[in-house]
Simulated scan of single mutants.
Amino acid sequence: MASRGDGTFEMSGSLTFQTVPQFQTHAGTLLLGGAQPVTIDMRGITQADSAGLALMIEWLQMARNERRKLAFANVPEQVSELIRVNGLQQMFGLENGQNR
């Protein structure tokens, strides 16, 4: 996970059951103790599964609890499909099939 310094963080690699714990370690840095909106750029994600989606949902809930805006950009098609199949388009701001 790399920071661009403007509230945007870039994810890369796999977002799967095996790698979610590595990404989870960044949650506090990303979402706690601040007011600036956060964007997670997922352009570098090469593979994802339901564990990755669960992590994204957890981060949205953490952000909501912190009253912090969190958005996901460049959501890979594989993740968008998981979001659609699970009926979570509104939660992720993908109501019209848009990929932020």
Rank of each mutant, 00 (worst) to 15 (best):
R100G: 12
G7R: 04
G33Y: 08
I40Q: 04
Q22C: 05
A51D: 04
G52I: 05
Q36G: 10
Q61S: 14
Q36E: 14
L70W: 08
E58W: 09
K69F: 03
T46W: 01
E77A: 13
K69S: 14
G93Y: 00
I83H: 02
S50N: 04
G7H: 06
Q89V: 02
N74S: 14
L32S: 14
Q89I: 00
M56D: 07
S14T: 09
M56R: 10
M91N: 05
P21K: 04
R4C: 06
R67G: 13
G52D: 06
P76C: 08
L55R: 12
D6M: 03
V20T: 13
G97V: 07
Q78G: 07
G5L: 05
R68A: 08
F9A: 08
Q18M: 02
R64Y: 08
G34R: 12
I45D: 09
D41V: 09
L55E: 09
Q98P: 02
A27Y: 00
R67V: 11
L82F: 03
G87I: 01
L53I: 03
M91K: 09
F9G: 05
I57K: 10
E58K: 15
N99F: 03
P76T: 10
S12L: 08
F72R: 00
L32A: 14
N96C: 04
V79I: 15
R84M: 01
E81K: 10
A35H: 14
M42Y: 04
Q61I: 09
N65K: 15
L82M: 14
R67W: 07
L30Y: 07
P76M: 07
R64W: 05
A51M: 08
L30D: 04
H26M: 12
H26N: 12
Q78H: 06
G52V: 02
F17R: 08
K69I: 11
I40H: 07
Q47D: 12
F92H: 00
L82I: 03
M11K: 01
E81A: 05
N65H: 14
Q78N: 10
T46H: 05
G28M: 03
F17E: 05
G28C: 02
S12A: 15
L15C: 00
A73E: 12
A54L: 02
V85L: 06
L60M: 14
V38G: 13
W59V: 12
P37N: 11
Q89T: 06
T46G: 13
Q61H: 14
T19Q: 01
N99C: 05
R67L: 08
R84H: 08
Q24E: 15
Q47L: 08
G93I: 01
P37M: 07
L60C: 13
Q89A: 06
R68T: 05
L32R: 15
E95L: 04
Q22W: 06
S14F: 04
G28D: 13
G34A: 11
T46S: 14
L82Q: 12
E10P: 03
G34Y: 09
I40G: 02
T19R: 02
M11Q: 09
A63D: 14
L15E: 02
Q47A: 11
